[in-house]
Simulated scan of single mutants.
Amino acid sequence: MPASITHRFTVEDYYRMAETGILKPDARVELIEGEIVDMMPIGPFHAGAGSELSAFFACLAQGRWLVWNQYPLRIDEHSEPQPDLMLIRPPAKKYKQSHPTPEDVILLVEISDTTLRRDREIKLPLYAKAGIEEVWILNVPEKQIEVYREPNYLGYETKSVVRDGRLAPMAFPDAEIDVQDLLQ
């Protein structure tokens, strides 16, 4: 029996599919390790928490970072996910030429309600391999924020779980959020 072969799409293939109409303009999809994956609809808590985080970080930025909401992150030739929120390095003009890459990311946040398993098992290892320094998973079902730091090829060296108190990105300790307030 012949072995099955899986075709992995590249980012260029992915964009060609969109340009030719194979992928509809309003399709909510992302490219993960060569596979085109449907994104789940965004529920009210997800949208509200994302908006709250975005407004909070935008208010404190003072030119130190840009807030990037549900836009592409070019990881490699086979992966271009769309995280819920990222803090990326300025200047903004740079991103008119190309999407941010892992080196541009200060903090990446996934808001996980129905996507918790996929975010932990598929996207988190992808982010670690890419060297993204800090990832937060806002775990909606368990009302907590999982903080991942110190990436390597196998995953993240440190994981902490925060349910209350204050939390700030490692790179900007003055940008503290009230965890309980965000999770309510």
Rank of each mutant, 00 (worst) to 15 (best):
P25I: 05
P25T: 03
P25R: 14
P25Q: 08
P25H: 06
D26V: 08
D26Y: 14
D26F: 13
A27F: 13
A27T: 09
A27Y: 06
V29C: 01
V29T: 12
V29M: 01
V29L: 00
V29P: 01
V29Y: 02
V29A: 01
E30L: 01
E30G: 02
L31W: 11
L31C: 11
L31G: 12
L31K: 11
I32G: 01
I32V: 15
I32P: 01
E33F: 01
E33I: 00
E33N: 11
E33A: 10
E33K: 15
G34R: 04
G34P: 07
G34Y: 09
E35A: 13
E35V: 03
E35I: 00
E35C: 00
I36Q: 04
I36P: 02
I36V: 14
V37W: 00
V37M: 02
V37L: 02
V37C: 01
V37P: 01
M39E: 10
M39C: 08
M39R: 12
M39V: 04
M39F: 03
M40W: 05
M40V: 11
M40S: 11
M40T: 15
M40Q: 12
P41W: 00
P41S: 06
P41G: 06
P41V: 06
P41K: 04
G43I: 01
G43R: 08
G43S: 02
P44N: 07
F45W: 14
F45I: 15
F45A: 08
F45G: 07
F45P: 03
F45M: 10
H46K: 05
A47W: 04
A47F: 05
A47K: 08
G48M: 14
G48Y: 10
G48A: 13
G48S: 14
A49F: 05
A49Q: 09
A49T: 15
A49E: 11
A49K: 14
G50F: 00
G50I: 07
S51E: 07
S51Y: 04
S51L: 07
S51N: 07
S51R: 08
S51C: 04
E52Q: 13
E52L: 11
E52I: 09
L53I: 11
L53Y: 06
S54R: 13
S54M: 14
S54D: 03
A55S: 15
A55C: 07
A55F: 13
F56E: 08
F56Y: 13
F57T: 12
F57W: 09
F57R: 03
A58V: 05
A58F: 04
A58Q: 08
C59L: 10
C59N: 11
C59A: 12
C59H: 13
C59Q: 10
L60M: 05
L60F: 03
L60K: 08
A61R: 03
